[in-house]
Amino acid sequence: MKHKEIRKKLLRYLDAELSQEERAEIRLHLERCEQCRKDIKLLSGAWNLSQPIRRVQPSPLLWNKISLQLEGKAQKGRLVHKVELFVRQTARPALTAAVVVLGLFIGIKLGNRVMMTELSSRQTVISLQSQSEFGLENFRALSPGSLGGELAALMEYENE
């Protein structure tokens, strides 16, 4: 067996759940491998210390709850408890998540609207600027009847 395989079997070795041959092989490996010796010491400590001698006891009132539920009287109480549990554990986080998502949605929408307004006002400024820079002023000097002159007259007509 390789080191890795042996390491995996240490707990079963401690619980004496391996065959004679496997146990002998692991014993031999432990004599040579310091790492596995350290690991088995740690494992054995935790595994044996936590031997489950201690049994836990239910609350003395548990039978009352059970008999009430069996009689159907606890249905209301249990329902209230379930609703409370649902609100505390499911509805509240879900509501928080919904508020966050809604906030994000409103934020994105508002952001888009502000950006669109800004863009359209910028476009208007640019269009006015470009008109003044490249538009009528440059065509005004052209003689009427020429192509440039006709275009300038047309733009002036459209602006009016």
Binding site: L10, R12, D15, L42
Partner: peptide, 17 residues
Amino acid sequence: LHHAKDNLTEKLTALLK
């Protein structure tokens, strides 16, 4: 149980370090 113990060995060794 065989697989559980092998998995536990790995998990416990990692937790104990």
